[in-house]
Amino acid sequence: MEKNFEPVIVGFLCNWCSYAGADLAGVSRMQYPPNLRVIRVMCSGRVEPSFILKAFQEGADGVLISGCHIGDCHYVDGNIKTLRRTPLIKTLLSQLGVEEERFKQTWISAAEGEKFAQVVKAMVEEIKRIGPFKKQAEEESDDFDDKAYGLMIEAAVTIEGGNIDG
């Protein structure tokens, strides 16, 4: 394993809870490793499976999705969509050969700065332990794309296709 490996983790945080929680960690000067790169979305339910695949494809070593706690969603139940999508994303990733440690989905509220710092710390440590992400078939990265896209569509339809709100 590479020495001094510094993983890059992409985090998709919802604006109202988790992004605010990350801000609170900042305001409280809670120190955590500088390996996370945050992309702000309005709701964790906005995060398409393809965003996660894109992140891995572009070289991320890990992806974090975080939203409001169940019941706290600013958009009523956007995080329920995230909740339902998560196991399918995990399945999808494992089919693509992505270790399960590389993908994490949490709920962090606007008041949980400390939890945010803890989550990042733990994730960085874990990914440092397993090393950098190497795409299963590096030379066939087009294949990764195609396979991923196909699976993604399948997953999207599976997740949303049924009468999930009923």
Binding site: V41, M42, C43, G45, R46, E48, G78, K81, I153, V157
Partner: peptide, 12 residues
């Protein structure tokens, strides 16, 4: 519309 984007994330 409140702009959560859940619909966008699900559109196949």
């Amino acid at each position: 519309c409140k702009g959560c984007g859940v619909c966008a994330s699900a559109c196949p």
